[in-house]
Structure formats: structure tokens, C-alpha cells
Amino acid sequence: MAGFLLRRGLFAIGVLVLISIITYGIFFWLSPDPAVTICGKACTPETIATIRHELGLDQPFWLQYVQFVVHFFAGTEYGTGPTATPCTFPCLGFSFQTHQAVWSMISSRLAVSATVAIGAAVLWLLAGIVGGVIGGIKQGTWWDRAGLTVALGSISLPNYFVALILQYLLVVQLRWLPFPSAVKFSDSPTQWFANYLMPWIVLAFGYAAMYLRLVRASVIETLSENFLRTARAKGLPSSLVIRRHALRPALTPVVTMFGMDFAALLGGAVIVETVFGLNGVGKLTSDSITKNDQPVIMGVTLLVAFFVVVANLVVDILYTVLDPRVRIPR
């Protein structure tokens, strides 16, 4: 087990290092010169050269990358004197636009993204697992068909389109929900809840459909396996067989998928946050893209990659614990 963990852990770290190099490389070679962006109006070639030097942009790629990694762990400072802004671990550099530390910009928005992700996850897990298990057990019934049809529809709907339809119906036509406006939970819990309800539903919509299909297929497959047939043949009641023996193996694939999906969402639901004007990491990403704020885009990319890689690792470990059929590979 220890060897397995070590190997997976090393691989995860390797992936992260590689992703950071590729990400850094893309911004290094493809993006427009950040010095020109910072320099702003009334800019001379000399000023640009000064800025490039100050930011270390005149150094070769590998040196810059190594410096980035060193700063990430050891921290650095932006500006000089008593007003310099410190950047401590995990230091992802400074935004070209707001001159704030990238990590503080991201971390201050993580709560919103997490709220979006958690609420949506609860909804889609509920709908997906319940629908999938019922569909799998009662395969071919009216329930199953209805579930599959709804899933097919919602899997085909792009979430920004669902967002518009929902807003049009619930806010404009039926007036069941107030127009979204940014409020703190402490100011108005009802408005706060109403604000998040639509993003939750919209996000959960597509995922629930995927999970329903996945769980359903998995349940059907598990039910056809030998050990369950044996259990049933031994005379155990059907409901007991399902609860005790079928569900756990049937739900293990869900764990894999959920780990990855949820991790990616923690790094911001770009489209949903943009459409609903929620000030999360996803909105930060799309705003930074329009402003060409490369350090922020890079920071978010690395953060999401980190989440996904860690989730992968956790899932791998959980898998060995959850599914009796999985043996640790040597």
C-alpha cells in the first residue's frame, strides 16, 4: 500500500510540475508582452525596457520559470519600501491589472465558487443517484424511460441556455425568484439563497443527467454479476441483496467521476458564474481573460490542475477501499 501511495503521489507531483511548465511556457511564448500592457498610455521604449528588467522578463525562459517556482514557495514582494505588497506561500505572482497578489484574488473568491459547487453537487448527486438506482433496478419501466428521456434532454442543453430559460421563466414570467443581486448571507438569507438556487439548478442539470446514466448502467451491470446471482439464489430477499451487496460496487464509478468533476468546479464554473454574475473564481477567470491579465489566468489554471490531480489521487486511494474487487496494482 505504501509503495502504491508513493508511486501515485510522485506521479501527481510530476503531472503538476509538467502542467506548470507548459502553462508558463504558453504565457511566455504566446501572450502579448506584459510590459507593454503594464506601461499603459504615454509609454516609451525605455520605460518598457525598464519594466521588462524590473519584472525579470528579459531573462531566458528557464530562469524565469525557476524564479516563479522559488517565489511560489519562498514568497516575494511587489514594489519597494514600507508600502510594498508582500506575497507569501503560495505566491502565484501579481496581477498586471490590480497589482494584487494573485493568490489573494483567487482565495477571496474561492468561497463563492465552493458554494456554487457544493450546492450543485448535492442536487446532482441526489437526482443522479436516486434516478439512476431506480432506473437500474426497474429497468425498462415507465420510471426508467422517463428518467432516461429527461437525462437525454438535459445532457443536450448547454448550461448557459438553461440559465437563460430558467431566468426567463422563474424571474421574468412567473416571478417566483427575485432578480439575482450580490448580497451577503448575513444581510438577507432569502435573497442569498434565491441567488444561488438558479446557478445550482443550472449546474446540477447537466451533471445529474450524466450521473443518472452512469449509475443506471453501473447498477444494471452489477446486478448481472455472479456474486449477486448467488446471493439471490441463496434465497436472500431482493431488496436486501440490492442494499447490501449491489449498491456499493455499483456506486464506485460515481466516486471517480465525482472527484474529478467536483475538483474542477472548485476552480470556478466559468460559464455559470459569468452568466449569473457570481463573483467566484470562474468569473475572475473570464474577467482576467478579457483584461489579458496573464498571471491570474495562469494562477487559476494551476489551481484547477492542482485540484484535479489531488482529486485523482484521493479517488485512486478511495477506490481500493471502496470496491472489494479492486486490488492494488503492483
Partner: peptide, 15 residues
């Protein structure tokens, strides 16, 4: 393991 959507956006906006 790449955050594909964010990455695609980043590359496309940089190109």
C-alpha cells in the same frame, strides 16, 4: 488532468 476549458480559453485568447 488539465483543466481543459480554462486552458482552451487561455490559449485561444492568447493566440
Amino acid at each position: 488532468a488539465f483543466p481543459a476549458l480554462i486552458f482552451m480559453i487561455a490559449i485561444l485568447s492568447a493566440l
